[in-house]
Design a binder for these strands. Structure first.
Lengths: 237, 237
DNA sequence: CAGTGGTCTAGACCACGTG
DNA sequence: ACGTGGTCTAGACCACTGA
């Protein structure tokens, strides 16, 4: 029933910010002032403020005070997983090709490779209710002793494929989302005879040194896939 | 030069997690144990753990201990703004229409309206280097006394349009991204004669009570727009 | 029962910014 | 000099889990 004091402080200040009683740029009361109003010790007040800081509501400036931030109104959280971002989930996959290949010029450029570095190439088809809905292509830099397990290649997401030899906490990922028309290969694999737009998601993986370690491109039929994202300020209250 | 002790603890534990010395599910040493190893007070240890918790690395369970999380490997951060997500930014806009209208059945459904609620409809064109690159359509629920300023309508992003009468901290937003072919109206406005796929971004705004207050749909030429997102675990070290 | 994390206190010293 | 936030201590009491 009773919220701890520091959370009451958090909620009070959030309410004032959301109701625009405190606007971006405004100073919030000093820590000592908040100790007075809530009749608590400074560490308790600071614990509350630390939460507001970590959630992006306020910023503290030593020697000056704490101030309401401009909200990050362009920031969204997107959950993406090539196997489950469709209107109906993927219920079947087909391995078209697994190969060790030498990279093309485009790939050397994109992954910042030396030209004789070997690449694992994986091509897959994704099905939903018996329909071909996406064509998926991965390029993974080959490391000696890399355990390549059939099951992971066939059913795994891109992070799954590398998680066995690196902590997922150490991997940085980037997505690029675009709309394209299918080229010949994609049209063939997806059996597209009419003009169907594709939602193309390119996924690039980096290690802790920010070196690219893999590239994945998934071509979703536009009529079977939608991505969604939501703003980050949905936290409580 | 010298990091504060609590941040040293944070970095130490992050390193152990990233190097897989601590794996998801593993317990990290108890708070008292950490006090011992770092020769500091418990509050200092707890300050460090609080950061690891807020960044999603660990979870604490009262009476049991603190444990390494499964990483949220599907989570990405996306920055979206209908005016600046293109390969070249938008340098010109054109207002096609501003109107107060009654909602269509589709809109009533999507915005969860009563049928006689008035709607502000705004249609705009976006240009980049003289080319038409996007067609933008907004539906805003009309509130009495809502200040509608020409400048905001012509040049503003969707959040801009509502920021004058609500704190942006109080607004929840949802995006839906898809690939479509242009319908007649969009093709006309964008002067599309060939088959060009569109990247369609639908943006819905909600107030604190989770009631929809606006809907925006932007139709970007697929060859002029890419969205990008990156994983959230890029935080330091 | 002993060990764990959760909350909270009443001090301390520091570096910073403004007058 | 004074008020601000930043770091840190050495305690306290609580509720929870597990043997």
């Amino acid at each position: 029933m009773e919220l701890p004091i520091y959370l009451q402080i958090v909620e009070d200040i959030k309410d004032k910010i959301k109701s625009a009683a405190l606007k971006p740029g405004d100073a919030i009361p000093s820590e000592n002032a908040l100790c007075e109003t809530y009749k608590v010790s400074r560490m308790t007040v600071r614990k509350g403020l630390a939460i507001l800081i970590s959630e992006g509501y306020i910023t503290s400036i030593p020697g000056k005070g704490s101030f309401v931030n401009e909200p990050d109104s362009e920031k969204y959280t997107l959950y993406y997983n090539e196997m489950s971002n469709l209107i109906n989930s993927i219920d079947q996959t087909k391995l078209i090709e697994v190969n060790i290949v030498l990279p093309t010029a485009k790939l050397i450029n994109s992954l910042n490779l030396s030209s004789n570095r070997k690449i694992i190439l994986v091509k897959r088809l994704f099905y939903s209710n018996g329909e071909k809905v996406a064509f998926d292509q991965k390029y993974l830099i080959y490391y000696k002793g890399m355990p390549v397990v059939e099951k992971e290649i066939k059913y795994g997401t891109f992070p799954d494929m590398v998680s066995k030899y690196t902590s997922l906490f150490a991997i940085k990922k980037e997505l690029t989302i675009s709309a394209e028309l299918p080229d010949e290969e994609v049209a063939k694999h997806l059996s597209l005879y009419n003009t169907i737009p594709l939602l193309v998601v390119e996924q690039k993986l980096f290690n802790t040194q920010n070196k690219p370690i893999g590239l994945g491109i998934t071509y979703f039929r536009g009529d079977y896939c939608k991505l969604s994202a939501s703003s980050s300020f949905s936290n409580s209250g």
